[in-house]
Design a protein around this nucleic acid. Sequence first.
DNA 1: CGGGATCCGCTGTGATACTG
DNA 2: CAGTATCACAGCGGATCCCG
Lengths: 124, 124
Amino acid sequence: MMKPDVYAANCPTRQILDRVGDKWAVLILLLLREEPMRFNQLRRTIEGISQKMLSQVLKSLERDGLIKRRAIATVPVTVEYSITQLGITLAAAVDPLRDWAEQNLKDVLAAQRRYDAQLKDEAA
Amino acid sequence: MMKPDVYAANCPTRQILDRVGDKWAVLILLLLREEPMRFNQLRRTIEGISQKMLSQVLKSLERDGLIKRRAIATVPVTVEYSITQLGITLAAAVDPLRDWAEQNLKDVLAAQRRYDAQLKDEAA
DNA sequence: CGGGATCCGCTGTGATACTG
DNA sequence: CAGTATCACAGCGGATCCCG
């Protein structure tokens, strides 16, 4: 039932969690699941990401086989990023988390307020 | 079907993803789902975490209402951490991700090797 | 035992400028 | 358009010491 290796240092889960934890990676994955997109298109859609980060994250997602890069020889060059089959399955595994977030954020925020109020009381 | 706010800067999902992405948070959550634990017990089990980080993560997990801290007035003091109901549901949402990791890590690693080999070829 | 406080190095990240 | 290169900086996280 339990999976002990989760608590070791180099378990698969840890590596994937790092990926998912990446501030932008999942965002991009979910975007590309909807439709393929070009570099600046992603940049404009995501809003807040620097072009350095975008380029970096795209590269690492491609390296992991989660997205695919296709350069089209137009002038100027066009590059289209799309999700892979592997990426689609990962995105699917992320969905429960997204649903959880939407359903429970309110409770989390409430807990935070309670905790902070508690601290202020003790300080006084 | 699609949930557009996921791509905005301050969506719930982003906040939860940050939590899940935390290197230690999920690990601790999964541990405490198995059984309540004390501070140094966690420290020894996780191996690699500094006491500063552990204390910090525990505090933020408690603040989010995901775990619960109970101090027992023995000498010396005993403190027991346990998961909350909310924490249990989050852990459940993480399970698909853990399963995905175990099933697909091999593919990811293979993709990385292919990508790296490709780069080396182009360099030559 | 269960932490808090401090110092400090490293790297992740952003801004800017440049290129094919 | 789709990036790369360089620099400069903040903050994360580790190590250490200390306390109730």
